[in-house]
């Protein structure tokens, strides 16, 4: 299935956000996720199903002012 992750097109086999996090190697990392522009809390990633064309954002702590 084709989706975009952080604006990059990706071919993935995961069908949920939780599965995607594992598949892309973010397991255990301190990250937050959004699906199609909406925040998805960690506790809801298992229920968040991915459709073709889904837009996923994965963010992490970064320097800021």
């Amino acid at each position: 299935m084709k989706i975009t992750v952080n604006d990059e097109a990706q071919e993935v086999s995961a069908t949920t956000l939780a599965g995607l996090i594992d598949e892309l190697g973010y397991a255990g990392a301190r990250i937050a996720t959004a699906l199609d522009g909406h925040f998805v809390p960690k506790t809801e990633r298992l229920q968040a199903t991915l459709a073709a064309g889904a837009r996923v954002e994965i963010v992490a702590p970064m320097q800021g002012g």
């Binding site: 190697g25 973010y26 990392a29 992490a60 702590p61 970064m62 800021g64």
Partner: peptide, 11 residues
């Protein structure tokens, strides 16, 4: 300390 969020690359 102020901090922010940015897209994270898994690598």
């Amino acid at each position: 300390l102020t901090v922010s969020l940015r897209r994270e690359s898994a690598g």
